[in-house]
Design a protein around this nucleic acid. Structure first.
Lengths: 117, 117
DNA sequence: CGGCGACCCTTGCAAAGCAAGGGAGCACCT
DNA sequence: AGGTGCTCCCTTGCTTTGCAAGGGTCGCCG
């Protein structure tokens, strides 16, 4: 089913970074855990391969700060937390998302009232 | 720069084809006009270069049917209309979109029990 | 003492939107 | 009659971005 799984990946384009920022804004986390959090909140298809490069980019752009801490069983964890710039970028990104989302809803004829089924 | 206009392009990933299908489901249209319709409904950044390749793919996949008709001033218009498969794909795609949209909203903390705008 | 699970990271890949470019037919103006 | 401009169609390369696959470290349990 390329039509199903695959489209969902495309839909995450341009939002995944926001999701990551949002998740660590609540409280810092390490990569492995972020995938679990995302999964728990409904984004079920996000794997590690997707977020580590992204996390690296966010760090490079100064949107997140990192620090290391040991774990009880495994290599040291790398914790990520949102920086001030990260929070601002998140807020801006959320605004963009809302705008785009509403526009798409409008085009698709989903303008309110009707939910599911 | 990259943060504003650019992100919006990314957000359209995987939805543009649905938007096109939706627009021509209302009533058939030719490419040039679709961009206007999308623009009128809030998707302001969609250019011709984006939709013609996409339209070609939709036709190749049998989701749209086409026919030619003369215009009063210009080359013959190529009209596109949704096929049965196209309507089904649209319905399926809309469902995917809703799911993904809700998940993203949840992660971004926009769940907020209906702001009822 | 060897394997397993938690945890980190990198390298290719493919999809998809966009900018830019190019062309044809018709009407109107000069 | 000839030029100019609008409508309309289509193609080629580029870039971004998420994903699959693969590999590595560390500590604990069997």
């Amino acid at each position: 089913m390329a039509t199903g799984e695959h489209r969902r990946s495309q839909l995450l384009r341009g939002v995944l970074d926001l999701c990551l920022l949002s998740v660590i804004e609540d409280e810092p986390a390490y990569g492995y855990e972020m995938t679990k959090r995302l999964r728990a909140r409904g984004l079920s298809i996000v794997g590690e391969g997707s977020i580590y490069p992204l996390l690296g980019r966010l760090e490079r752009e100064g949107l997140v700060e990192t620090h290391r801490a040991v774990s009880n069983g495994g290599p040291p964890r790398k914790y990520y937390r949102a920086s001030d710039a990260g929070r601002m970028a998140l807020a801006a990104g959320i605004a963009e998302w809302q705008t785009a989302r509403d526009a798409v809803d409008a085009v698709l004829g989903l303008t309110a009232t009707e939910v599911a089924a």
